[in-house]
Nucleic acid binder design. Structure first.
Lengths: 151, 151, 151, 151
DNA sequence: TTTT
DNA sequence: TTTT
């Protein structure tokens, strides 16, 4: 019954995050991330292969996304695969695979950052379970994180 | 353009792998893997949450899967997310997300293994790019792997 | 300044964990974990290569280790690299690299588990930052975890 | 006996790589990488915590490092923990833990790149075992890689 | 559809 | 839809 479901991505956002503020202080951000693989085929030609990932971020991470991420931003993202299932109007079973983001590190040089006074400050939430160092605009999901935004 | 697209899973197979031998010595195996997350909800009740992943393995890894994996097998798997896109009969765009497996380690105790004379032998292919230790029935994708099966 | 420092290991314990109960309810467990890489050399002979890792677990994870892990246990472990530095008696600078464990999943079949009344229950702490599914005896570090042990 | 020994780091180089060309076309590069963790302590003060990692890269990866990496470069690195053991002059057992790099992606914006004629080209070796997309100056270890450098 |  |  043990399980591990872990995804690690580094790529660029295809557009600005779509952020929804829900009732009860909940926030959710959705954004797609491109990871591009580049290789040479047999004839020696370079081939680019792009995979698009649907990211979903909640609460503290969603707020960071809203404030700092925009189309083109490069990020390191850690999370898990999550499949939404539902029935469409025709009664067909439909599924959509998303990446629920649990950790994020921004990889753009600071000067690219929007909304910032130009600082180099790092952001991480102080959850003891922050599963790793997460500086620059870097955060983990966690309890109390909502109040932990440094701005 | 840089990209990282990495998935790490530990779970159990939902059924025996489906293996297809294609022309030109190509082999592909498909199998679904369950990763179960277990937590206590607010009321203190234990809740199980199972996510199913569609794995795709090629060539050497497919042969290992065919020989060693079966319904219930526990495995560590490393790979990348890959989305297949096509149009269905109604002309609708359809997508299916799969995990292309690039590395695998069997986690069952040896005695569980099918088809084996009871050995404890480890299997790994000798690709220099084998990105890590992969013993027991453990293998990486790689060139020449097809000839590297230990049976 | 952004950083990611992540380690993922699957292996077996070299001996029982050494657990120390410190003041203020702090608990620390130390144990070494072997990861074995197996490959064929040029001559086709199988070669085993074992790397030993010094694991350090705190609080809830340490208690789980104390209760469930023993010499030979197979575990999946996630954490970060941490170097302790000090001066020895001769005034030499010394370093010791350890893996600070932040997530753990036991991979033994339940019947191997010591100290259990035979249950199959799964254990995970309910930190919202639990970065992934962690069932069976599986836990994450996290706030309040100390009180979250199911035994 | 199964094992997984995997390290994932994102950080900045502390100095230029030290590259040694050995006999038989072997090349090795050593460089230290800083991963910085940033958090707020109880008093709300920001604390930075830097961990230094000794990276070792071989052959194709070493050449890429020699050509593209320099002090301050930001990189994503994937590899395994490897402990060198030896006896010093006094006969004491000594150990040194290194990260053997098996995959690398440069994370600097292109304009930061040294030695380049301004190109945006991506580099990856075409090993089928390249365990993931590795574009920009991005490479995996692998067979034949030595001849696969695009410059 | 798995596993405990 | 991104990025170089």
């Amino acid at each position: 019954m043990a399980g591990v479901n872990k995804v690690i991505l580094v790529g660029n956002l295809g557009q600005d995050p779509e952020v929804k503020h829900l009732e009860g202080d909940k926030v959710v951000a959705n954004v797609s991330l491109a990871t591009t693989e580049s290789y040479k085929d047999r004839s020696g030609n370079r081939v680019d292969n792009t995979e698009w990932h649907d990211l979903e971020l909640w609460d503290g991470l969603a707020k960071i996304a809203e404030s700092y991420l925009k189309k083109g931003s490069k990020v390191y993202v850690e999370g898990k695969i999550k499949t939404d299932s539902w029935q469409d109007e025709q009664g067909n079973n439909r599924k959509k695979v998303k990446i629920r983001v649990l950790n994020m590190t921004m990889l753009d040089s600071r000067t690219d950052s929007p909304n910032t006074g130009g600082g180099n400050s790092n952001y991480a939430n102080n959850t003891s379970n922050s599963s790793q160092s997460m500086p620059s605009p870097a955060v983990s999901e966690g309890p109390g994180e909502d109040d932990d935004l440094p701005f």
